[in-house]
Design a protein around this nucleic acid. Structure first.
Lengths: 352, 352
DNA sequence: AGTCATATTGTTATCGATATCAGTTTCCAA
DNA sequence: TTGGAAACTGATATCGATAACAATATGACT
């Protein structure tokens, strides 16, 4: 390890305590114009002569002026951002959705502020409250389960709301998503068509992850409807369950129901864990046991065997949700259609 | 009852005289106190009698009042948040760092605003600019490479800055990180001690990912110093290179230098891709070829064979960086020590 | 009683920008 | 020449909260 002393001698720290930071008035003085003209020069639509604008931009540069958005939005009553809350920072599905949102917002002049709920409606409530204090112009949520208080705040806020990734029974405002239970049921049917009969399901322990619960419900329903019930369910670990929990859960599954011939997992990550664990135990996948996931993560397409899964249009969810939000913010009137269903596709591969 | 209200001429708005959102003044009126008292009641430290506070909270609830932070921070000159910029939203290393930051900020009364640079200093510059317009009380950056303009803005901002994940030659302010080149060199030496002699390296094509470049430099230097040079380098794909690029890169490596006996990858994800590709081609890992990664992602501990890698203390980086920031924000004077080195550990497993 | 500390609440003056409307200049058509 | 639209710029009044100081009440202590 390098024990070399840092050469902190170069320059001074970032603390420039001497001068108070310049305001727009300083810039205006420097450029010999009024603050209003400075304000206009700094907006792209401001009608200011080229000459004046140049002088102002020089002043801005010279003084190192940085606009104060707090003051600006207080005055203009527009904050220029929308909020999006997702369960997890480190999940490629949700990050795809975030990308979709960002892309859709690209030329709208709106920024995205992301918040992480950690799969908890309580944290979501707190986040909503603190987001609302910053006055977003719209808000995108993941899922349709919220605390009553959260729901109330959103309804009172008067801003457009889009719930995503689920189809809530009683939507707050707009919805962009798919039926988790129906998608999972489709996967069950596809696997039944391949000849599997003894179905197992692996997911997290609690109801925290509502999408997980919905998937489990869809699993159970479909297995029942096919006359193959009851489905075998192992709940293990606090959502989001990851590779390790998938591995541990499949062990429980095999202990309890050794003859299970296919295991569906709440996500690809847990499916991968289950797959690795089975292989570690010398089981053939498929053959001794089949495994399927959910979400079509990159890993599923590259491991051996490749994992059968469901692709849900994560990016599209984000893009559509943000588009819907923009429409509501700008157009004002909702175009009637409050619910947008997104597509999905069962992807059959070697693991099941 | 309302005759004592200030002649504010409320409800003069063109359209909705009734539905305009309540302000603190409305709450004050409703509770029969001044706005100042309402303001105090809504802060935890506000000295207000229990009786009054209760009445005010009732009014808040009744009116559905939500504090406007823009107005608050304009007045108080405190925004109550810090910014952190990380390269990628979907990378468990950086999300661990983000968790560390969040945890350290827990009881500070400061919120975290996360931004994503997508490994681009240009995007970073834009993000810094827009963050600065919201007046964060401090800022945490990933890496030590920034555009000159970005650097200038940060230095002029007057707020504390912490650069992380690297040891910049010329730090802006504070630094919390490790030497990527030295860590990679350590990995090379550990593998040389295991008997490997023909070293290959897989990373992204461009200099966008400075940490990747530093790792490559450390690799080349160490191989040279061991008298095993020159190291074999394959650059493939735009950073962050992922599973698929790792797989493709190892193919190039094997075509160009078929006798390579160990391949080091810029990250565990690419290492996993390389591993899968080698297995697909019927090669034994290790045996025919050894593979190592960087970052100790969960996947490396669960695949077969488990991947040799380096664990860098991602969470600790975040925690220490935020701690340092708090110190600078509150304590004011920097405690002299501007550089914090974080620990790391080579983790030898079966893949190499 | 008188003085003073403490607790509670109110008044006033901003914080730094922008909306709005008014004033000025430019330039072209009649 | 002149009216008048178009382009540009400025003065003023907020936006909604909080800091700082002032005022009042209460009770304790000398």
């Amino acid at each position: 390890m390098a024990d070399k002393a840092p050469d902190k001698a170069r320059g001074k720290g970032a603390h420039d305590a001497s001068a108070t930071k310049p305001t727009m008035a300083d810039v205006a003085d420097y450029a010999g114009v009024s603050t209003m003209t400075v304000s206009r020069a700094l907006k792209k639509d401001g009608r200011v002569s080229e000459d004046t604008r140049k002088r102002i931009l020089e002043a801005v540069d010279k003084l190192g002026y940085v606009l104060d958005q707090a003051a600006g939005s207080l005055s203009s009553r527009r904050t220029g951002f929308v909020a999006a809350l997702v369960p997890s920072i480190n999940n490629s599905n949700f990050s795809d959705t975030a990308r979709g949102i960002t892309d859709a917002l690209e030329n709208s002049g709106l920024q995205l502020l992301l918040g992480y709920t950690d799969y908890s409606t309580e944290k979501e409530e707190k986040l909503i409250q603190s987001m609302l204090q910053r006055r977003p112009e719209g808000i995108i949520l993941t899922g349709g389960s919220h605390t009553p208080q959260a729901r109330r705040m959103l309804e009172k806020s008067g801003i457009p709301v889009v719930e995503t990734w689920e189809i809530p029974e009683d939507p707050i405002d707009h919805v962009v998503g798919f039926s988790n239970s129906e998608v999972m049921a489709d996967l069950v049917r596809a696997l039944a068509a391949r000849g599997y009969r003894k179905f197992g399901y692996i997911g997290g322990t609690t109801a925290r992850d509502t999408r997980g619960s919905l998937r489990r419900a869809g699993f159970l329903k479909a297995v029942e409807e096919l006359g193959l019930g009851p489905g075998r369910v192992i709940s293990f670990g606090v959502p989001p369950i990851s590779i390790e929990q998938g591995a541990q859960a499949v062990v429980s599954m095999l202990e309890r129901w050794p003859d299970t011939d296919v295991v569906l997992c709440v996500s690809d990550l847990s499916a991968f864990g289950a797959l690795m664990e089975c292989q570690r135990r010398g089981m053939k996948v498929p053959g001794d046991i089949a495994i399927a996931g959910f979400g079509d993560y990159e890993i599923s397409a590259f491991c051996h065997p490749r994992i059968t899964t469901v692709n849900v249009d994560c990016y599209g969810i984000g893009k559509l949700a943000a588009g819907r939000l923009l429409q509501a913010i700008n157009g004002g009137g909702s175009a009637g259609d409050e619910l947008t269903l997104t597509s999905y596709k069962v992807i059959l591969r070697e693991s099941a």
